[in-house]
Structures are given as structure tokens and as C-alpha cells.
Amino acid sequence: MNEKFLSLDNIEKRFKIQGHEDYIAVTNVNLEIKKNEIISIIGHSGCGKSTLLNMISGLDAQSEGHILLENKEVKGPGPERAVVFQNHSLLPWLSVYQNIEMAVKKVMPSLSSAELRERVEKFVSMVNLDHAKDKLPGEISGGMKQRVGIARALSIKPKVLLMDEPFGALDSLTRANLQEHLMRIQQSVKNTVIIITHDIDEAVLLSDRVIMMTNGPEATIGEILEVNLERPRNRVELQSDPEYIRCREAILSFLYEKFAKDD
């Protein structure tokens, strides 16, 4: 197995500010991500975690350094790095089905209409939305919208799934439900996933490794935590698992003792 699947090499992001020195948001980020690994990036707001994700997705360009996916330099956005946006970003004039269809049609233009329908329906089913496939995004709940967002991202067969605080806007019960969906999907279809989050439990529950970012400006990777928990994981049983508790405490101590932020 080629261990070097996705690598970030000395990434820095500077923003120009008129009449001032450049603002260095993120600097000196080095990270190797293995195939089918799930990692979370956690940090206080303003630590540049979304900036980092945007550079991996190509929506934003790094000022320094290289991002390599399967030894190829990442330049600009592309469907092999699918993004699940925080606000779901579904097109409101298209139904659930059509939102996914639009993506599949674009990325896999060679599919016959039967294959296209089969693929779209497979991903609608994967997030349990068969009953709502003809509904418009305005007619379904926030959690369901985010499920469509996940299905749309996965339907285009990405090499990496990038999730920018995917459940941040949802209430905690819906969030838990979506985490379960994500873990279940990940059990059947292996993906390389990068999740930006500010939720400690979410990070531990979902990830193989948790990347902890120091505070900005000049934010960088502070610590990397390995989560040695068997899958499938059960959130209730985990509460008393010593490894789970160790991981939670490690992140808590990083965020609230070493890099506390008062605002």
C-alpha cells in the first residue's frame, strides 16, 4: 500500500492587507494522510482549519508549500476532492434526486441514462432518503439536507471527502444521527475523509486521528492524536471506554489548557 496518499508539505496561507504586513493565517503545516483514513481537524475558531480545508479542496490557493494527492499536485478544485459544505449548498430549485443527478451527470458523463438513475438512486438510498427524493431542499429538514449533501459528495466517487463543519449548524440529536449515518456509510464504502470540527466528541467518535491546531495567527498543527478504537464504534459504550476518555482528555487539555482562547 502506498502510504503517501494525500500529503501537505509546508503549507502556508498569507492574506494581503492594504498598508499592513501580510496576515499569516496558517503556516508550516505538514501532514500525511493515509488512504481510507478518517481524520478530524479541530481547533478554536480563527485557527485556520477551514482555510486549510479550502486549500485541500482547491477553492483557495496556498501561499507556500505543496499539496499532493497520489503524488499529483493539487491545483484548483475538482471532483476527486468532493466537499460537504457546512450550509449544505444544495441548489434550491432542484429536488433531492436532481441535486445528486446533476453532480453524477457532470462527473460521469459516459453513464447511460439507466446507469445514471441506478447510481443516483443508490446514493439516495445510502442516506435513507428514498421517501424524500422528489422533494425540494426547502421542504426537508436541515439534517436531511446535509444527508443529501453527503450523498451528492460521495456519488461522484471522490478520492477524498472533505467536510467543513458538516454538522455544525444542526442540533445535537440530529448531529448524532448524521454521525451514525456517516459511520455506517464509511463501514460499507471506504473513503478518505477529512472533517473540520469544533466538537470534541465528534472528533473522537469519527476519526482515526485528530489533528489539533494551535491558535491563529500563524496557526499550525499542535498535536496529532491517534484514536485507537475498534470499529464499528458505539457512542454509548464508548462513554466508559478508557481509550475514549483518554482521547477526550487529551483534546480537552490541548484546547483549554495549552491553547485556551478567551472570547
Binding site: P77, A82, M102
Partner: peptide
């Protein structure tokens, strides 16, 4: 901009 980001990722 969100919709345009979707378009960018799909390389419209």
C-alpha cells in the same frame, strides 16, 4: 458563493 463553489468542485 456557495453555489459557485459547488460549480467549481464539479468543474462546470
Amino acid at each position: 458563493q456557495d453555489y459557485m463553489n459547488v460549480a467549481k468542485v464539479l468543474q462546470f
